[in-house]
Amino acid sequence: MVKTLGLRLVRLLATVFAVSFLTFFMTSLLPGDPVDTIIPPGIGERDEVLVAQIREELGLNDPFLVRYGNWIGDVVQGDFGKSYVTDQPVLSEITARLPVTAELAIVAVLMSVFLAIPLGIASAYKQGKAVDNSISAVVQFLLSVPPFVVGIFLIWGLALQAGVLPATGWVRLTESLTGNIESVILPASALALSQLAVFTRLVRADMISTLQENYVLSARAKGLTDGYVLFRHAFRPSSLSLITVVGLNIGALLGGTVVIEQLFAVPGLGRKLLEAINTRDIIVVQGIVLFISAIYVIINTAVDLIYMVVDPRIRVKSA
């Protein structure tokens, strides 16, 4: 077990390093000069000496590998560099934005998972009946509508027509609990609905095959109630693909809230990333991408560990 965990840790670190290199490489290919951000061209006379000096200071003249070595060396020590635009440390920019995105992603995942489980189970239990057909129809619809369209509809319906929730903006948890909850509901729902569709399908498909298993019949033959058989006996062995996809999706959500954050004017990591790309604030882009990918890799490792908790047979194989 300890050996397994150690091996996983090594693999995790290797992946993060590989990602960091690729990120650095790709952002270095981006057109545009970071110095243009600091001293915008076209406004008066540019002091070419100063430009050259800044370039030298930022190490932009160094060869690619040297630049990467310097950057990753600092990152390992917790120094992500300073934003070219705001002159703030990149790390503090990230940590200021991260809670917002994390809250959004977590709320969205929780909403979708906790709705998808009962819906998927009900659908599988009543396979081919009216309940199943209507759930499947709604799921099909949600799958084919992109989240931002759902978002626009939610803003129109709940914010503009009913006026119960704010259309855009963000209230921090530290400022007001109710305000925070109100501001998270709409963007999280927009994110959750399409996820909900995917998760419901997964749960339904896995449950249908589990319900054919002999041990479900023997559980029924023991006189246990249907609800108990469904949730205690059938759901857990049916949850492995759900766990995989939820894990993948949390990672994807952390990076994928960009559009929704933009739509709902939520000051999260995704919005910051977009800003940084637009202003050629490359060091911020690198920092955020590295951060997101590290979280992604960590979550996937966690998912593998959760497998072992859910299915004792996997525990034996990897021990």
Partner: peptide, 14 residues
Amino acid sequence: MVFQDPMTSLNPVM
């Protein structure tokens, strides 16, 4: 009831 295949009639995760 006692079923035919004991390998599959017990729940593997309980």
